[in-house]
Design a protein around this nucleic acid. Structure first.
Length: 270
DNA sequence: CGCTGACCCTGACGGC
DNA sequence: TGCCGTCAGGGTCAGC
């Protein structure tokens, strides 16, 4: 489920229920996530006040004076506000219970996500070596151009490389490349500065508008079914192989790059 | 260092 | 109805 907009939507959704609250209990029903949930995580968290909920790449960071809880939603994870009286369902692996009775419930069928801990002032290995945030000023066409020189792999893999820029998942990589008229299999090192300028702008654009759309369904998401605004999105190429290009009508083609499906228009993208 | 492919896991879907 | 292969929005890691 989660690409960066979903994670940011989740952050905004859970923040009002977490910040300023004291953790009463952590209930781990299934510790076998991408990495095992640390045995002492509950002990470390209990009694701590969440002072901030931040996001770095697709990681959520729950800050406390004693350290930070790191949450990743993986491919199929979600975090929502639940009532502790509500019986946990299938794949509801973890509950974070607060003083005052509310609860954040983590569901993850595929268990590619993680719940980890990092000491204050220290950098978790998973978070070191991450590239710039796509919506920050330090990410631009220049960044992409410079880092792409000498690289022979497909541009789509390049922009999905977390060391280059974080948070560009498969959906938005496809969408941004379409908007910039760049074929996903073009060699990264052979694309002009000018086209990278356009690509960086479109990455920002597509992520920003997706976050805004996520925001429109925020209320339902937090209180209810745990589905952010994914279905409200209008996608131009992702998931539309064989269907006509919305710009020129040519049937969209699909190819696989790095085991991930890539959809593009042979006429609009070069 | 850059790139490729295997792998982690469950569930949905299409073909037979 | 069931079985089987394929695919799914994440990312790490080993090996070349």
């Amino acid at each position: 489920m989660p690409e960066l907009p979903e994670v940011e939507t989740t952050r905004r959704g859970v923040e009002p229920y977490s910040r300023g609250s004291v953790v009463r209990q952590l209930v781990v029903r299934e510790p076998r996530l991408r990495w095992p949930v640390p045995d002492d995580l509950a002990a470390l968290l209990c009694g701590q006040t969440i002072v901030a909920v931040e996001r770095r790449a697709k990681y959520l960071l729950f800050r406390t004076a004693a350290g930070s809880l790191i949450v990743h939603l993986g491919m199929s994870g979600s975090l929502r506000v639940a009532s502790p009286t509500e019986a946990p369902g299938r794949h509801d692996h973890i509950d974070l219970l607060f003083e005052g009775g509310h609860c954040l419930r983590y569901n993850d069928p595929r268990r590619f996500g993680c719940f980890l801990w990092v000491e204050p002032g220290r950098q978790h290995p998973l978070l070191s070596n991450l590239g710039p945030e796509p919506l920050s000023a330090e990410f631009d066409g220049e960044t992409l151009y410079r880092r792409s020189r000498g690289r022979g792999g497909p541009v789509k893999n390049f922009i999905m490389d977390g060391k280059v820029v974080v948070g560009v998942g498969n959906i938005y990589a496809n969408e941004a490349l379409f908007l910039s008229g760049i074929r996903p299999d073009r060699r990264a090192g052979r694309i002009s500065h000018c086209r990278y300028q356009s690509l960086a702008e479109n990455i920002k654009q597509v992520l920003t508008s997706a976050i805004e759309q996520g925001g429109t369904t925020l209320k339902d998401f937090v209180g209810g079914d745990g589905k952010p605004g994914y279905f409200a999105r209008q996608l131009l190429v992702y998931g539309r192989a064989g269907q006509p290009c919305k710009s020129c009508g040519t049937a969209l083609r699909e190819l696989r790059l790095g085991q991930r499906s890539s959809v593009y228009c042979v006429a609009c993208q070069r």
